[in-house]
Amino acid sequence: MSTRVFSRLFLFLALVFVQTLILCQVRLFGYCMPLLLVYYLVLTPSHQPRVISVLEGFLLGLCMDMSLNTPGMGAAAMTLTAFVNPYILGLTAEPDKLEDDFVPSSLIMGWGSFMLYGGMLTTVFAVAYFLIEWFSFAHVQGLLLNIFGSLLLTLPLFAAVELIHRKMATTKS
């Protein structure tokens, strides 16, 4: 139990570090921002109390906001993503797996389901975040470029990090 807590704390710090210091400074073509921080929510254990998940989401968003100096923007989007996370997991994971307490990964869910799950979660976050950032439907084109550009940039990162994570897991076992 405590191992899981520590590993999640480590993951939290590492992802916040990478996101705030490196990835938040990236705006490819002025629109695309890698949203690796969502990976922390992807790895939320399926039976983790939802109150803790929502709180984690809020803290993650707040950390992102502190780095970008946009208080409330990331916090609102990430809290929403953390809130809908169990529902998306329910949609993408196999029903018999949901009864067990598991940490979503490509090993358990398979690459297809895992990437779909990660992609949907990232989409929710991107839509919420960029909608709040634009705060208007007057420039739908820019908004869509932001959402899809960031999604396309984030998914390969997810795959890469998941690959590393998977290798580390197999080495341990």
Binding site: P49, L55, P71, G72, M73, A76, T79, I132, F135
Partner: peptide, 26 residues
């Protein structure tokens, strides 16, 4: 969890409208 979600969204909203000029003015 729903209650906490609503409270945290309200807090985020307050932060958003208070510290972000564009969103605040809109």
């Amino acid at each position: 969890h729903v209650l906490l979600f609503v409270v945290l969204e309200v807090v985020s909203g307050l932060l958003l409208f208070h510290f972000n000029h564009y969103q605040g003015s809109v």
